[in-house]
Amino acid sequence: ATLPVKCQRRGLILPAAAMYTLGSLIFGKEARLADAMERGELHNKNVDYAKEAEERTELRIRALANTRPMEPRYNGHVPLHRYEKLLLFAISGWNSFFHPEDGYNIVQLGEATALPVFLENLKQTMLSDSSGRRILKEQPNITTEILHMDKLAKLPHNTFGYVYYQWLKRENVSPDTRAPVKFIDDPMHAYIFKRYRQCHDFYHAITNMPIIIEGEITIKALEGANLGVPMAILGGILAPLRLKKVQRKRLYNIYLPWAVRTGLSCKPLINVYWEEMLEKDVTALRKELKITLPPDLRTMRKERAALRKEIDAKYNSQKRATTPA
């Protein structure tokens, strides 16, 4: 009874092997390389391949540039059509909800939601304040070189610069990791958004918030309430929904109310010339900006973890006592 099965199997395997061999002889690597040689595509001494590649790249770039709605208005600008902006919003929103830890998604969502109405409003806020006007005029760029990390480390411990330095070290981040703006059309608006993005770390430092997801949501809510950044408002409303129950409770009871209250009552944070505040006393600066410190998120989490461990231990010991050995 086994014989016909065997024959059948051989009847399948041999033709398959033959077809594979034939296919690899005709379409295999060797055959494709030799075909390319016959067409004179690889080593032809009469053809300048580097120049051809360069021309192809240039043509491709020109073809791509022709599909854009306008000429780039600043360095790194990628002009988008309206439908592309809508797509960017949809895709980056979806990605941000499920992968908020990937900064690239948040960056794209931020630019997709940065409507000109909001940016114009922010610009007016800046223009109505003297240091805001100065920032717009000088357009400073926050990098490690400008901040001089080693200098910050030597500042007195009560200064904002030292607090900021300590925060960077504790969270293991660097001010250089801010992505450039690409999709905002107006150059001034693009600068304002970049400035907002670069100042984000200062908000963390002055409110002593860690970069874990709860801290980020709190800071987003603060930015949303204070500056009206659409992405921040969206984040403050939607991001808690995907958290654990404990975290959500903590946010709704303590941090989000604090963030909204502080954001609405303190001075517009975009108008702060942070680079000049580094040597100021941090409590004086908080007072000047009318910022009150929230409870420390890290200690709160630690306390809860310790409590839980304690309860677990108690439960386990009780269980051991009641169950017969």
């Binding site: 055959a31 390389l33 030799a34 040689m37 690889l42 080593h43």
Partner: peptide, 9 residues
């Protein structure tokens, strides 16, 4: 190169 060898073959 691989291509030249394949072509000679």
């Amino acid at each position: 190169s691989d291509a030249q060898a394949a072509f000679l073959d």
